[in-house]
Every structure is written in structure tokens, then in C-alpha cells.
């Protein structure tokens, strides 16, 4: 990311990080998103410190207990309990670990592979490009959730298989995006100039062209992070992702579905947790776009 600005030798130029923060912090939503994300991250990492109960501890005396601020609530169970008397707040706190981990793994896998393949396709063109794009078309011909469902049918339900499937279907977006930006940039004067100046293929690909394609890629990466969380939760909801009694948010929703009228809070909070986490990441993504896209900066 530091490649966006030139190395700050002269005085008076802010450092790349300071400049980044200057533009990022102008977007209030992004700062709020970052703050929420950091809170969720800390809570997830230090889950045993924050959770008032164990996520699997069942209290037979307190089944489907209402949240503490409602009549009949118990202050020791802030968000109430589920059908087998487990503390919902504690399960949500532990659930944050799963969601963030899923997002991280999926984004890392799909960004690295997608950008490499996209650069190659866009830069070399010709037959390489055709073969790569046809393979991407094949993957993109399946809806992500459907492919994940089918993979799960083959490999058996579980988080790992869900993550593999979600990475696989996210990757073509990065390939397409990188390729499209490379195609747009490849013929521009600064790239031609760099070529004339004698720069090698690797240098042109990674140092000349890639930084100018970073804006949309970073936005796509944050979107992929949140999409991965959503897809994994959806699989959990369908009973094909993390399996009970794992406190994964989507799985919790699936377990809570039958109490939809009797105990709406059991349904409300896991979904709210997904929404807030995904929203925070997407807010950050918008801020990153504003801070990293040179075109938007000047306008």
C-alpha cells in the first residue's frame, strides 16, 4: 500500500501512512466501522475474558430466558438464553471468532491467487488469457452458495469445506477485476514510458501497473471478507456449515428458527451480530476506497 505514494524524501510531504489516515479519517463512517471492527476483534480474541458463561454451559432452570432488561429477565444472562439454557451473549462472543477467522482465510486465499492469475491473464493476453478466463467463467457459472452446498454434499458438512468452497467462488472476481484494470492500464502512456525506459516484465506488472489497480482490489477484498462471513453463516443456517453445538452465528439462527414466534430474541441477536460485523467491515471498505483511489481523491 505504501507504493501508492512516492518515498517521502523531501520535507513537507506527509508519510504514506499519514496521508492514508488523512483521507481515511475524513470518512466518518469508515472510522466508526474501524472502531466497531477493532472491538469485535478484541472481544473475539479475548473471548474467555469477556464471556460471562461458557458457550456450551446449559442452565436447565433458565430455558428461553428473556433478555435482562425485559420483565422476567436475569442480569446474569444479558441477552437471555436459548432453548437449552445457554447464555446467548457468551455464544455470540465465541461466535465472533469463527466469523472473523472464516473471513480472514477466505480473503487471503482468494486475493493472492486471484490477483496473480488476473495479472498474468491481463498482461500476457492471447492464449493464456483465453484459457484463464474460460476457467473463471466455468467457476462463475455456479452461484457461490450452490457450489458450496454441493461441495459440502461431497465432502461432508463443516467449516473447513465451507471455507474452501467460498474461497473458490470468490477468486474469479479478483481475477476479472485485476485483468480488467490491467487491460485498461496496459496501453497508457506511463506504462509505455516505463517499457521504453527498459523496465522488465515483473517490474511493470507488480510495480507499475498493480499499484494503479489497487483501489478496486482493496474494495473488492473487503467486500469478499464480509461476503465470506455472510456465505458461511448462510451455510450454517442451512445446516451445511458449522455443526451444532458450535456457537457459529448462522448455526445459532438455524437452531433458533423454530422459536421464531415464542422467543424472537433468540432469532434476533445472532442475525444482528452478523449484520453489525459485516456492516463494520463494509464501512471500512468504503473508507479504504476513498483513501486509496487516487481518482476519487482529486475530485
Amino acid at each position: 500500500m505504501s507504493t501508492v505514494t512516492a518515498s517521502p524524501k523531501k520535507t513537507g510531504h506527509p508519510s504514506a501512512l499519514a496521508e492514508f489516515w488523512h483521507y481515511f479519517s475524513r470518512n466518518k463512517g469508515a472510522v466508526i466501522g474501524l472502531a466497531i471492527f477493532i472491538v469485535i476483534l478484541v472481544v473475539a480474541i479475548l473471548a474467555p475474558l469477556f464471556a460471562p458463561h461458557s458457550p456450551s454451559e446449559q442452565n436447565r432452570e433458565a430455558l428461553l430466558l428473556v433478555p435482562s432488561w425485559m420483565e422476567g429477565g436475569n442480569s446474569s444472562y444479558l441477552l437471555g438464553t436459548d432453548a437449552v439454557g445457554r447464555d446467548i451473549l457468551s455464544r455470540l462472543i465465541y461466535g465472533a471468532r469463527f466469523s472473523l477467522f472464516i473471513g480472514l482465510v477466505v480473503v487471503t486465499l482468494s486475493v493472492i491467487s486471484g490477483v496473480l492469475v488476473g495479472l498474468v491473464a491481463g498482461y500476457f493476453g492471447g492464449r493464456t488469457d483465453i484459457v484463464i478466463m474460460r476457467i473463471m467463467d466455468i467457476i462463475l457459472a455456479f452461484p457461490s452458495l450452490l457450489l458450496a452446498l454441493v461441495l459440502v454434499a461431497v465432502l461432508g458438512p463443516g467449516l473447513l469445506n465451507a471455507m474452501i468452497a467460498i474461497s473458490l467462488v470468490n477468486q474469479p472476481h479478483f481475477v476479472r477485476l485485476t485483468r480488467a484494470s490491467v487491460l485498461a492500464e496496459r496501453e497508457k502512456e506511463y506504462v509505455v514510458a516505463s517499457k521504453v525506459a527498459g523496465a522488465g516484465t515483473m517490474r511493470i506488472m507488480f510495480l507499475t501497473i498493480l499499484p494503479n489497480c489497487l483501489g478496486p482490489l482493496i474494495v473488492q477484498a473487503t467486500l469478499a471478507f464480509s461476503a465470506a462471513i455472510l456465505d458461511a453463516a448462510a451455510l450454517g443456517f442451512l445446516g451445511m456449515g458449522a455443526q451444532p453445538p458450535t456457537p457459529e452465528w448462522g448455526t445459532m439462527l438455524a437452531e433458533a428458527r423454530e422459536f421464531i414466534q415464542r422467543a424472537p430474541w433468540v432469532v434476533t441477536f445472532p442475525g444482528l451480530a452478523i449484520l453489525i460485523t459485516v456492516l463494520a467491515i463494509n464501512l471500512m471498505g468504503d473508507g479504504l476506497r476513498d483513501a486509496l483511489d487516487p481518482k476519487l481523491k482529486r475530485s
Binding site: G29, S226, L230, A233, A234, F237, G250, L253, R257, I260, Q261, P264, V267, T268, P270, G271, I274, L275, V278, L279, N282, L283, D286
Partner: peptide
């Protein structure tokens, strides 16, 4: 703001809320 909330929505939960 509304669009971002919509974009971040877990639709299976959104559906359950609308049903409730």
C-alpha cells in the same frame, strides 16, 4: 447508508425478521 445496511444484510435473518 441504507444501501450499505442492505448490502450487509444476512437475508435469511432479514426474512425471519419480516415474518416475525
Amino acid at each position: 447508508g441504507v444501501a450499505l445496511v442492505g448490502y450487509s444484510m444476512p437475508i435469511f435473518w432479514w426474512g425471519l425478521l419480516l415474518i416475525i
